[in-house]
Design a binder for these strands. Structure first.
Lengths: 245, 245
DNA sequence: GCAAAAGTGTTGTCCTTACACCCATGC
DNA sequence: GCATGGGTGTAAGGACAACACTTTTGC
């Protein structure tokens, strides 16, 4: 008992200078904004909602909210996803902080951009309050705040990362055809790819599981369906060394 | 006059809902921490300083400071560099936010990690207050706060980025030998590279300017010195497309 | 049978890797 | 003349890019 109490007192003394130090720092409001990508009808989509603010009336914005007291940053981003889409277990990663002093009309607000990838089919968007909906990435003209800049930065991040990591599978149904996979890459990267080379590439990686099922209800020869072999990928991660610029 | 005044009133009305919204947000102290890498005697170094806090006495920490009211985030990072090293025009990039609620003993503090690369020779470290000095990256055991984690994250960031962009030249003198360049890559990546292939690689890139000077005061055949052709690099940037994971 | 997309192989080029000997300098 | 690191070439293998025809299905 006494030992415990002594330890408490000792640690109180140790942090006695830390608390006033932190109290002396300026404080700013902190938010999280999620750039949530989806893929449907061969189009890259982003989940957006109408802004509440008068100055941005009729403009759309990213899904965001302030970070609560003592809430972890990643938790805040997952909370927003959960509140807006009802989904857990969604891919999400911190991308960058945006903190220009004038980026918010109500005063200084720092925001942390998160990029999220989700499978539209797995999640029926029930709530459409404030015009919450999926919008075609390439058709979005402008957004509230600096959200267009944030969205474009996250798109660049996605373009880079989808080439180095198997992120794309988060946007597809469990079962997908090679054509869908290629369409996804083409939509995100804004290029067209050679079909044979694309298929060869994925065949040689040996990370797709042939489930012996075929597309249904297509008016042409149906394609085979595959699943992604997440386990094998996790085991085989390699460290790449090379110099290329 | 009246038109201007009407506009002012109109814009006041437009932001009238934005200001109370922002005022309603929780506020947190925000700091910037710089992981400043240098390279000397074929060793990767980091600039560290003794922590002020009692709880961390005898521990080293990164160079950091709070972000001032209305100070841009990048500006804050440059300010810290300038105050501590006297240097401007140094490579610096935002890497990630660290915001675990308990990462600071004095209460919640969010910090933005910046990675900076600087040429130790260009900057004589005059001030050594609080044991401000260069420390060997690989010999650092532990640091105050979560700074070890931040430092290691930035090292990973550097490893990745030095392979894709010519960042390494920020750590070298204007004139350098191929051996120094290779030592730099080996120190950062923690690998050994084949000398002939390394030289061929850089020769084929054609981004090194042969300045027809040689090393001095070495006890062996002196190596040629080169400069990096920043202009040519800037012009020739290409967009890479490929799938590799 | 026609439209629409699936599926499939080869070749040339380039990049990467592995590897061993002679050269210039200081001492 | 010896120790130290500088400087160089080649051959094999693997990855990537370009390119055209046959197959299956729905209508």
């Amino acid at each position: 008992m006494n030992i415990k109490r002594d330890q408490d007192i000792a640690s109180q003394q140790l942090i006695q200078d830390a608390v006033p130090l932190v109290l002396s720092y300026p404080k700013v409001p902190l938010t999280v904004d999620c750039v949530i990508f989806g893929f449907e009808e061969n189009k890259l989509k982003v989940l957006l909602i109408k802004s509440d603010l008068k100055i941005y009336k009729n403009k759309l914005s990213l899904l965001g909210d302030f970070v609560k007291d003592n809430e972890d940053l990643d938790d805040a981003a997952y909370r927003i996803l959960k509140e807006r889409t009802g989904m857990n277990n969604v891919f999400l990663d911190q991308v960058r902080v945006f903190g220009k002093p004038d980026r918010h009309p109500g005063g200084r607000v720092i925001t942390i951009a998160y990029c999220s990838l989700l499978n539209i089919q797995h999640h029926a968007l029930n709530i459409h309050d404030h015009e919450l909906d999926w919008y075609n990435y390439h058709a979005i003209k402008d957004l509230a705040f600096d959200h267009k800049e944030i969205m474009e930065y996250c798109h660049g991040w996605l373009q880079k990362n989808i080439q180095e990591h198997p992120l794309g599978f988060n946007l597809l149904p469990d079962k997908f055809s090679l054509r869908e996979l290629q369409n996804l890459y083409e939509a995100i990267l804004g290029v067209t790819l050679d079909r044979r080379n694309f298929r060869k590439k994925f065949a040689s990686m040996d990370l797709l599981i042939d489930i012996n099922e075929y597309e249904q209800d297509v008016s042409h020869r149906p394609g085979k369906l595959y699943k992604f072999n997440f386990e094998k990928y996790e085991k085989g991660k390699r460290k790449w060394v090379g110099i290329d610029f």
